[in-house]
């Protein structure tokens, strides 16, 4: 009984973090139909941003998350305006190569700038690394990251539902031509979506930093997780991203308990099964996996 409670707590905490890590990827895909292969590198940059913020100014990433978010919003705008804008109505392969190229560039730039060392930061004071809830062990780093995930996911949902620009983003994701006929400027919507998606990704990297090591190629682990979460929950669906994250967190934690060696394999097995059986995911729109901008 105790073990099951522990697995549930760990699984949900991990799942929330996974959902947050995948949200930016799914948002950008849902609206601009771009699969961002550099997503993991933006997470990596978020982690390093948190590291340097803490190391140079002493501001820990839990408090500094808004600063990281604002900075990465600008990074997202630059990402769209400087690169993705030129690929947006082009065939998918153009976008794949553009983002894949950027991914390689960012990884190697990070390697040159910061070397391949593993870095971490300590935030929670000694003795506060974990707390006990109903007898279950809860790592505080994961708990804070989870709370951030919940807050950001809710904030994004509210933003999309209740602001004009949020609704415009939603409209473009559902029918680009109809959105244009409503007076929506798609270029502005794409710009805002990339800003928002990368801001979320940067913050995700930042609040993950204290529970993971940062190094230049750490993104390639997270991007795989993010792809599984997005495909599992549903392409273009934010509710799906939350569900996908939680499911993956629970499954991974459960399997890790029974057969620790197979923990990593769950990602691949789930991904392959889903792509074969239900490629639009649990909550995704049927056919979303084939969607391109028209």
């Amino acid at each position: 009984m105790q073990a099951i409670l522990q697995l549930l707590v760990s699984g949900v905490l991990l799942g929330g973090v996974y959902a947050l890590g995948a949200l930016g990827l799914n948002l950008i895909f849902g609206v601009a139909k771009v699969v961002n292969f550099a997503h993991g590198e933006f997470l990596m940059l978020g982690m390093f941003a948190a590291y340097w913020l803490m190391t140079l100014t002493g501001i820990n990433p839990y408090l500094g998350a808004p600063i990281i978010g604002a900075a990465f919003f600008l990074v997202g705008l630059a990402f769209y305006a400087g690169l993705m804008r030129f690929t947006i109505y082009k065939p998918e392969l153009t976008q794949v190569f553009a983002t894949l190229g950027l991914s390689i560039l960012l990884q190697n730039a990070a390697l040159v700038a910061w070397s391949a060392d593993y870095r971490t930061i300590q935030i929670m004071p000694a003795g506060w690394e974990s707390i006990q809830v109903l007898g279950a062990y809860v790592p505080t780093n994961r708990l804070v990251a989870f709370l951030y995930a919940v807050a950001i996911l809710l904030a994004v949902l509210v933003f999309l539902r209740s602001t004009f620009i949020g609704r415009a983003i939603e409209a473009v994701s559902q029918d680009l031509v109809a959105a244009r006929l409503m007076g929506i400027d798609p270029d502005r919507v794409f710009l805002m979506t990339f800003g928002l998606g990368i801001a979320i990704t940067g913050v995700a990297g930042g609040v993950l930093m204290p529970s993971f090591y940062a190094f230049p190629s750490v993104g390639s682990f997270f991007v795989l997780v993010a792809f599984v979460v997005v495909v599992l929950g549903g392409l273009g669906s934010i509710a799906g991203t939350i569900l996908g994250g939680l499911l993956l967190g629970l499954v991974e934690t459960g399997i890790g308990y029974v057969a620790p060696d197979l923990k990593e394999a769950t990602h691949f097995v789930l991904l392959i099964l889903l792509l074969a059986v239900r490629p639009h995911g649990l909550l995704g729109v049927k056919g979303a996996e084939k969607e391109t901008l028209k």
Partner: peptide
Amino acid sequence: LFPRMTVRRNLEIGAY
């Protein structure tokens, strides 16, 4: 129409 928006949302986005 935006298929996954309510009728009301569809109308409201018309006034964008």
